[in-house]
Design a binder for these strands. Structure first.
Ligand SMILES: NC(=O)c1ccc[n+]([C@@H]2O[C@H](COP(=O)([O-])OP(=O)(O)OC[C@H]3O[C@@H](n4cnc5c(N)ncnc54)[C@H](O)[C@@H]3O)[C@@H](O)[C@H]2O)c1
Ligand SMILES: NC(=O)c1ccc[n+]([C@@H]2O[C@H](COP(=O)([O-])OP(=O)(O)OC[C@H]3O[C@@H](n4cnc5c(N)ncnc54)[C@H](O)[C@@H]3O)[C@@H](O)[C@H]2O)c1
Lengths: 231, 231
DNA sequence: TCTTAATCGTGAAATTAAGCACGTTAAAAA
DNA sequence: TTTTTAACGTGCTTAATTTCACGATTAAGA
């Protein structure tokens, strides 16, 4: 009934279709956040005009982004808030919880372990690993810290698919190798270093310095401009 | 002698030239990381071929990115490692230390306060702010935690330009407003919410869920593909 | 000195992403 | 019931980004 010759990208759709572009995926959490806010405000339907407006995006962009989802809007009305939330969650795989291992129980690792927001993103950290004997055996936010040597074995036994690296950069490659050996399928790397990983394992680098680079360069550029203009 | 009619983007250059594109800026920290590694390996010169190779990028892209810098390479030899490091740092403003305020001394805030890597990025967190009476007055990694009410005044007095938000999303807008009131020029926002900020203040959102969205959707898509193929 | 080979800088081509415009549709108003 | 209006879906246009290609340059080796 809806979108007849429209190519589906959802898991249900056959033949891989087309990969959803990275920029589209990166906007999805923003939509989700705004939609949840609208929902708490009691809104049941929302237009792309309003949704995109809140996020400072072009309405047409939102509409285009949503063609990657299994949902269509209604003219004059827009999209059902709850339905759109569900569609985005389903697209991202956030409707099912997936277990993850975290390596590096330092200050960043502890923050990640204690972060409750990951539940809403389908991520459940089930164990932490470290090499520091002082940390092994302790429990952080209810999660056990285990010796790194147990990682590969446990990963296979527990069929864990996601690994999070929060060790110093110098240790990251070694940890990544263990993760690959343990059969993990995806690595979320917080260490500021580029990893060598076989192509069958997905890697995403969360490098804070990338954002900082944009911020500080722009700030510096503005300063230079002001100095030039005013004096 | 070098690059005669080449338009400069450095602060020294007149008339604003052209803004360096965001994708270029976001690659800079990666180059920097690889270059530092090369330097510790004793390398004095490096070609774009080798540098980009380590990062999985196209050599031509690196060359083009470096046109934003105040440096030129030599045929057959490449770029001087140290010179290129300095040129990138100067471009990003990482050669000067800038003071910053952090708001929200929770688990993420504490991790950021303790992170020594920011020194290399020209960022020096000089004070933390919170509303929790239990945290105010304490000291984290040598940084005082002050009441939020002091932020605006202190920011003006100390001429701090950068603010970091590490509070819950619900408090982020309020904190951002105080930062604007205090005359901060740039905000680095770790709360997963979009802020309303006047255009003269720069904002960069560090939303971890964006990276996670890419990772988990790709993982899910692979799973679906495998299920289809194998059984 | 002359040749070879690696790399640079850059314009042109290709690819990808974003924005626009318009015909269509459904709700609400006349 | 008819008209008006807001918003959808989508093909087309424009802009941004990346890749390709090649002449120019310089170091090293014959
Ligand atoms: N803390 C931050 O705010 C922050 C910000 C940006 C990036 N990072 C990056 O995140 C990573 C962790 O930072 P951190 O501040 O938590 O550091 P940290 O020193 O507090 O923690 C690192 C942890 O890793 C453990 N470790 C070291 N080698 C290991 C190994 N081979 N296997 C397993 N565990 C090992 C250490 O025992 C320690 O517990 C670093 O790469 C850092 O650059 C941190
Ligand atoms: N912890 C993580 O790993 C993580 C990961 C991703 C995103 N984040 C985001 O970072 C932010 C902080 O996360 P967290 O885990 O540190 O939370 P947290 O609850 O540990 O810390 C929040 C801190 O902010 C303070 N605070 C609350 N309201 C305030 C206000 N109005 N003004 C000043 N301070 C205020 C609290 O007292 C507390 O100290 C959140 O927005 C969270 O969504 C955290």
């Amino acid at each position: 009934m809806t979108s007849p010759r429209h190519v589906r990208r959802t898991p249900a759709g056959a033949a891989a279709a087309q990969a959803i572009p990275v920029p589209v995926l990166r906007r999805m959490p923003g939509y989700l956040q705004a939609l949840r806010q609208f929902r708490t405000e009691g809104l049941e339907w929302v237009s792309c005009t309003r949704l995109a407006g809140r996020l400072g995006l072009d309405p047409a962009l939102a509409r285009k982004d949503f063609t990657a989802l299994d949902i269509t809007g209604k003219p004059k009305t827009g999209f059902p808030v709850t339905g759109l939330i569900r569609a985005i969650e389903s697209c991202l795989g956030w409707d099912n919880v997936r277990d993850a291992f975290l390596v590096g129980a330092g200050s960043l690792g502890r923050a990640l372990l204690g972060y409750r927001g990951f539940r809403e993103h389908g991520l459940n950290i089930v164990a932490a690993f470290d090499t520091d004997p002082g940390k092994i055996g302790s429990s952080l936010h209810g999660t056990q810290v285990l010796p790194l040597s147990k990682l590969a074995g446990l990963a296979r036994r527990m069929r864990v698919a996601i690994g999070i690296i929060a060790t110093p950069a110098a240790a990251a490659q070694e940890v990544a190798d263990l993760m690959v050996a343990g059969g993990l399928r995806a690595i979320w790397n917080f260490a500021p270093t580029s990893l060598s990983i076989p192509p069958e394992v997905l890697v995403e680098n969360e490098d804070l310095s990338r954002t900082l680079a944009v911020l500080s360069q722009r700030l510096q550029a503005r300063r230079a401009l002001e100095l030039e203009e005013n004096g």
